[in-house]
Design a protein around this nucleic acid. Structure first.
Length: 226
DNA sequence: GCATTAACCACAG
DNA sequence: CTGTGGTTAATGC
C-alpha cells in the first residue's frame, strides 16, 4: 500500500479530473492505493466501511449473500467507483467486492469524499451520472434474469464480455464454470451443457476458458428471445 | 399423457 | 475444476 499523489495520477476518474489543485491534494492525503490479486476481497459484506473505492484497473465481481447462497450481482470493470451506495447508504457493507482479475484500487476516506461532493458540483455531477447509469444497467439485468430462460441469459452474458468488458469477439473467461453459473443464475452443470451446445451449433468456440464468438447474430438472437 | 427445461446427484478425468 | 449421464420436478401443450 502506498499513499497516492492524485495530482499526477494518470488514471484519474472523470470526476477527479474536475477537481481543483487544492481539492486533489486533499484527495491525495486521504487516498491509499492497493493491489489485489484475483480472488482477494476488496471489501466484505457485513464489515464496517469508511471508504469509497476507486477501481483504477482490473475487474471485480460484486457479490451478495442470498437466502440460499452467494449471488454475483454483477461484474464491474475499471475505471469505476465501488461501494458508493453501500458506504453512503449504511454503515455496514451490503455486498462484497472481490477481484476477478488483478486490480489496482484507491481507498478514499468517506469524509473526504463527502467534502468533495459538497464543494465541487462538477465532481458530484460525474458521480451522480455513474450511479444513475449503474442503476439503469441493474434494472436491465434484473428483467433479463427474471424473464429469460437460461440459454438466453448465458448468451447475454457472453455478449457482455465481448462487447462491454473485452471489446473483442475472442476472450478468456475470467470466471470458472461455477462463478459463471452464479452470474447467470443457474447451475454449474447447465453452464457446461449449454456452452457445449452453443459450440455444437457453431455459434461459439470453446476451449476451456477461451471463448470465441463465431456467429454474433445468432447469439444476439438467443440473447433476446431466451 | 407427453415434451421441454433445468436442477440435483454421482462419478470420472 | 469440468463434463456427462441419470433422475426428477415443474410447466406447458
Amino acid at each position: 500500500m502506498k499513499n497516492a499523489s492524485c495530482t499526477v495520477c494518470m488514471l484519474k476518474s472523470k470526476a477527479a479530473r474536475s477537481l481543483q489543485h487544492s481539492e486533489l491534494d486533499l484527495l491525495g492525503e486521504s487516498c491509499v492505493q492497493a493491489v489485489f490479486e484475483p480472488g482477494e476481497t476488496i471489501f466484505k459484506q457485513g464489515a464496517l466501511s469508511s471508504n469509497i473505492i476507486y477501481l483504477q484497473t482490473g475487474l471485480v465481481k460484486l457479490t451478495i449473500k442470498g437466502p440460499q447462497r452467494v449471488q454475483i450481482m454483477r461484474l464491474k470493470k475499471a475505471p469505476s467507483y465501488l461501494g458508493v451506495p453501500t458506504t453512503m447508504g449504511d454503515k455496514i457493507n451490503h455486498y462484497s467486492a472481490i477481484a476477478v482479475e488483478r486490480c489496482t484500487a484507491c481507498f478514499i476516506d468517506i469524509n473526504t469524499f463527502k467534502e468533495l461532493l459538497k464543494v465541487n458540483p462538477a465532481f458530484s455531477y460525474e458521480i451522480m451520472l455513474e450511479l444513475c447509469r449503474n442503476e439503469l444497467e441493474q434494472y436491465q439485468r434484473c428483467v433479463k434474469l427474471v424473464q429469460n430462460q437460461v440459454y438466453g441469459r448465458l448468451a447475454a452474458n457472453l455478449l457482455i464480455f465481448a462487447n462491454e468488458i473485452y471489446n473483442s469477439n475472442e476472450y478468456d473467461l475470467p470466471l470458472n464454470r461455477n462463478d459463471l453459473a452464479d452470474l447467470v443464475c443457474t447451475s454449474r452443470e447447465t453452464v457446461s451443457r449449454l456452452l457445449a451446445e452453443l459450440a455444437k451449433e457453431s455459434i461459439i468456440e470453446v476451449e476451456g476458458k477461451h471463448i470465441r464468438i463465431l456467429d454474433n447474430e445468432r447469439l444476439e438472437n438467443i440473447s433476446e428471445k431466451g
